[in-house]
Design a protein around this nucleic acid. Structure first.
Length: 302
DNA sequence: ATCCAGGGGTCAC
DNA sequence: GTGACCCATGGA
């Protein structure tokens, strides 16, 4: 019998509740289940599908494997997976130093202390999700994602609940446009998602391909070369999946709203001011973006 | 009804 | 390279 529990030491400036809250917010994400004290998630691994739960135990994150293999290799995989998901290896202190130098955003270092940039380690998932989320409100986007995942993804049943796994590229590559349209995808959006899936199947797009490129600009360019991937989508993927600090989702409505809301810009068109703002946060562009997104959501009183 | 939402493509200049 | 315009579809 393999051990079912893994403990990961938590870094300084880490707040599990903040991370948990962001995973939940008020949206219906079909790819994890958040409770008061834990998050449940099912993923595909090289060792088969696994359902696990992450909670906090003292100064450790505790991963409990609920379904699927728990051999040492898979345990290592899950350890790396969760570390990446919660961005545990990053030292946030320099970021908080910068926030505190910025009178407009200094409060974030206190109010959101310990919030990590929650990632999407599967690049294909990050790409599909960002395509789905283009130009529509998030409530609707989560609804569309759920329909697609329920139709094309595998799942694990446990304790009378269903935990969905994001569909494989090979499955979505054979999806029919009309089926996606029935899920309220626009014609173009259906084409983009299926096109992305086919690119992954054909090998013209992959994590290793992007990883092999020398710098941020070339990675961005390689992504934008595909239909349906503009600057916003490319940078979103680079932010959430590759953790490139420079992956600012330029033009993002939420980002622009937060920038105006904090008095950093007066108009959405003030490109030079936006540039100057991010220059102050060099190396932390995506983190400050993430915290600005966080600031848009009002945390309910508990 | 009207404006908006974590954009992208196309096409003129 | 930049800007105007169109597209698409539900939320509030």
């Amino acid at each position: 019998m393999h051990q079912q529990t893994i403990l990961i030491a938590v870094p300084p400036l880490f707040n599990f509740q903040e991370c948990l809250w962001f995973l939940n917010r008020n949206y219906d994400d079909c790819l994890h289940l958040v409770t008061e004290t834990a998050v449940f998630k099912a993923i595909a691994t090289p060792y088969g599908d696994v359902l696990f739960q992450v909670s906090e135990q003292g100064n450790f994150l505790k991963i409990e494997i609920l379904e699927g293999v728990a051999n040492p290799e898979c345990r290592d995989f899950l350890t790396a997976y969760v570390s990446d998901w919660f961005d545990l290896d990053r030292d946030l202190l320099p970021f908080y130093m910068q926030l505190k130098r910025d009178s407009r955003l200094a409060y974030m270092a206190e109010n959101f202390s310990g919030l990590r940039l929650m990632g999407i380690s599967d690049m294909f998932e990050a790409l599909c999700w960002s395509i789905i989320g283009q130009q529509i409100n998030l409530t609707f986007a989560y609804k569309m994602k759920r329909r697609m995942v329920e139709r094309y993804g595998r799942h694990i049943e446990w304790d009378n609940q269903v935990f969905h796994i994001f569909p494989e590229p090979a499955v979505l590559a054979n999806a029919e446009i009309d089926v996606l349209r029935g899920m309220q995808f626009s014609q173009k959006k259906a084409e983009y998602v299926i096109g992305a899936a086919r690119a992954f199947v054909e090998g013209t797009l992959s994590r290793s391909l992007i990883d092999a490129l020398p710098d941020f600009e070339s990675r961005q360019k390689a992504l934008v070369g595909h239909k349906g991937i503009g600057i916003w989508t490319a940078n979103y993927v680079l932010m959430k999946s590759f953790r490139a600090p420079e992956g600012i989702p330029h033009g993002d409505v939420g980002l622009l709203n937060a920038l105006t809301g904090h008095g950093i810009i007066a108009e959405r068109t003030e490109k030079d001011k936006i540039e100057a703002f991010f220059r102050d946060y060099a190396g932390w562009e995506t983190y400050v973006t993430f915290y600005l997104w966080r600031s848009l959501a009002v945390k309910p009183l508990t």
